[in-house]
């Protein structure tokens, strides 16, 4: 199973290049304009990412993360959720940059290949910044009453976190 993951990037890139060539597009200039677009989106996420790295840094250094983790651990242990991941799970639907910063913090603390690192990766990859996404989409249509949207999206996030842990337990028994 690990093999599929390892081969996905090189195979995807090969596939994309062949696809672009077969469709008779100018592959090189498409690549260049994509790079340009990527460069500006990296530049645009930097300020928020910087702000949230600082926040996560002091959050960890002050001992507040450990306090929250300790307080919540009886509950999370009972349901089998790693308590170290609770601050990440809380921040995930609120802030994309914040959860990137938090995930990076967990990678430095436990390592990306530890159970915590794997679990945080799967959680990150299978959820979105729910509050932001909903706000942007409904602002576009000028909708005031969004009915059951937020409730359902947050329940789905919670469900996704639980499934992430179960899937990680199956794949990487700790």
């Amino acid at each position: 199973m690990d093999k599929i993951g390892t081969y996905i990037m090189p195979l995807a890139i090969l596939g994309i290049l062949c696809f672009g060539f077969a469709k008779k597009t100018d592959v090189y200039s498409s690549f260049i304009s994509g790079v340009k677009e990527g460069f500006s989106s990296v530049a645009s996420i930097f300020p928020a990412l910087f702000a949230l790295f600082l926040a996560v840094g002091v959050f960890r250094a002050s001992g507040l993360v450990d306090l929250i983790t300790r307080l919540i651990s009886p509950l999370t242990n009972a349901i089998g959720f790693p308590s170290e991941l609770v601050p990440f799970a809380l921040l995930r639907p609120v802030s994309g940059s914040g959860s990137l910063a938090m995930a990076s913090d967990i990678f430095s603390k436990f390592g990306p290949d530890s159970f915590e690192g794997m679990a945080v990766s799967v959680m990150m990859g299978s959820t979105e910044t729910t509050f932001y996404t909903t706000a942007v989409y409904f602002a576009a249509s000028g909708t005031k009453n969004i009915r059951h949207t937020l409730k359902c999206a947050l329940i789905a996030d919670l469900f996704s976190m639980a499934v992430s842990i179960i899937v990680c337990r199956i794949f990487y028994a700790p």
């Binding site: 199973m1 993951g5 996905i8 990137l100 990306p112 990766s121 799967v122 990859g125 299978s126």
Partner: peptide, 21 residues
């Protein structure tokens, strides 16, 4: 991000992410 943190198999989370998603 995972390879920036020196993961031994950065892309190995792909299949678990597909299943979970």
């Amino acid at each position: 991000m995972r390879s920036a943190h020196d993961s031994v198999s950065a892309a190995s989370i792909t299949v678990p992410i597909w299943i979970t998603s």
